[in-house]
């Protein structure tokens, strides 16, 4: 359970990015954070693992208060929080395997990581994850040889190998085509369900947010203006988040594709082989 109280961030330029956010994310809930550019979505999730230092407020992950931690403890809590990035943020000149294993850096010592001597259990887990996302045959490719969708899948593996309690996802589909975007969102949702993970997903695309999240939080100018289920997103709500616009084409009809009713929506871990084929064939 993640509990955010009065989270405030003022940048050195004086801009007030967050104005006292209160937010609780219970275990195994997939939550989408929507809002216009500059609303503070990115700042919220970066304040949670303190890639950005919050100015005031508290962030607690399962009763660990994160905002007061010093460097070693902060690293220990960071490894409990997986993060998936916009534009993938893979280290491009490292191989796929090295990228995935870099998710274990918080657990192994410096020399071990320097010599790339990760424990066999980590390597097994890395292969299992790569297999799960359909990329185990790519383990020795360099990250910059991969397509966008493949890269984001490696990014997901890197986050999951941390064995996190919470997933922070920053615009995962920002540079992907519509089809790959859906695949990636579906994968994230499935993996969260398999591992009982909670996730906060920053996303621009309201339709994708409605399709794959069970709860939607709307942010505007550093304040929460909506917090509720996806099907209560009305034109009025969207206007309060984004401003005046014709929303009729954006809002998903209730009868449209429901991710929870699809036959392949939640794939159990054992079925990963067919899943892999499905994913590999589509990239």
């Amino acid at each position: 359970m993640l509990r955010i109280k009065g989270l405030t961030k003022r940048y050195r330029t004086g801009d007030l990015a967050l104005k006292g956010i209160d937010l609780d994310v219970p275990d195994s809930q997939v939550m989408a954070l929507i809002g216009p550019s500059g609303a503070g979505k990115s700042t919220v999730i970066r304040c949670i693992n303190r890639l950005v230092e919050p100015t005031a407020g508290s962030v607690a992950l399962n009763d660990t208060e994160i905002t007061v931690l010093r460097s070693a403890d902060l690293r220990r809590v960071r490894r409990r929080i997986g993060m998936i990035f916009q534009e993938y943020a893979l280290v491009e000149r490292l191989t796929v395997m090295e990228n995935v294993l870099s998710g274990r850096l918080g657990y192994v010592g410096f020399w071990q990581s320097w010599l790339r001597r990760f424990p066999q259990s980590d390597i097994d887990e890395a292969f299992r994850l790569l297999e799960r996302v359909g990329l185990d045959h790519m383990a020795d490719k360099r990250a910059d040889e991969l397509s966008g969708g493949q890269r984001q899948r490696v990014g997901i593996c890197r986050a999951l190998i941390q064995n996190p309690e919470l997933l922070l996802v920053d615009e995962p589909t920002a540079s992907l085509d519509p089809k790959t975007s859906r695949q990636i969102m579906r994968l994230i949702k499935e993996l969260c369900a398999e591992r009982k993970l909670s996730a906060i997903i920053n996303i621009h695309d309201v339709m994708l947010a409605q399709m794959f999240a069970e709860r939607i939080v709307g942010l505007r100018l550093g304040e929460i203006v909506y917090d509720g289920p996806p099907n209560e997103l009305t034109p009025a709500v969207l206007t309060s988040i984004y401003g005046e616009e014709d929303w009729s084409a954006t809002i998903r009809k209730a009868a449209d594709e429901d991710p929870d009713s699809g036959k392949d929506s939640v794939v159990p871990f054992e079925r990963s082989l067919s899943d892999r084929d499905r994913l590999a064939g589509l990239t």
Binding site: I81, A89, L94, L105, G106, S113, R158
Partner: peptide, 26 residues
């Protein structure tokens, strides 16, 4: 590219690991 380095930092890497995985390859 700051994003690549930030991603490594977010995994809970120590400073030296961060240099080795996030900065050095670049």
């Amino acid at each position: 590219d700051a994003a690549q380095a930030e991603a490594v930092r977010a995994t809970g890497a120590s400073w030296l690991q961060w240099i080795n995985f996030g900065v050095q390859p670049q």
